[in-house]
Amino acid sequence: RKLSFVDRLEKHPLENRWALWFFKNDRNRTWRDNLHLVTEFDTVEDFWAIYSHIQMASKLTSGCDYALFKDGIEPMWEDSRNKHGGRWLVSLAKQQRQSNLDRLWLETLLCLIGEAFEEYSEEVCGAVVNLRTKGDKIAIWTSEAENQPAVTFIGRVYKERLGLSPKVVIGYQAHADTATKSNSFTKNKFVI
């Protein structure tokens, strides 16, 4: 589809209304108090207006997160839409914050708002980028870890859209496994 003259005059509605969240680590406050709803949008044009007015992910300080979730879903395991779900996790090396993080996060956002996963887009809850000194992380969260056809389709499309080399392996982890783990290792339920 090309942008016609009429296209330039009107806003383009998204399939979903999305909420942008910001997390800033402050050890004196609870995790929930550190999580802030920034704004919501439901058109392509409003997405770009917001995107161009906020800090790029790579400019945030370590410990911060951005999250983009469908309206009505909170970016936490406890939400009923996330509870039985999991995430496709892309772990980045430290040096990728400068070279790759912003491109990969934008691509993730475009996958979400453009409904890149076709009929399986229904399963998508949102996405999170974590800025961490030991290595940043980007993940797409889906609502049902046992839904293998949906999870694997989303993983394949996502990996392709990120332009990751076939040699790079991304893993899907159930939130229930992440929440109950006793060390920093969570087993992958699926890999692509």
Binding site: R1, L3, D7, R8, A116
Partner: peptide
Amino acid sequence: GTRIIYDRKFLMECRNSP
């Protein structure tokens, strides 16, 4: 119903549109 799907190219064009 039908899903509103936008590919990457269309979304990027909207970014640059005045």
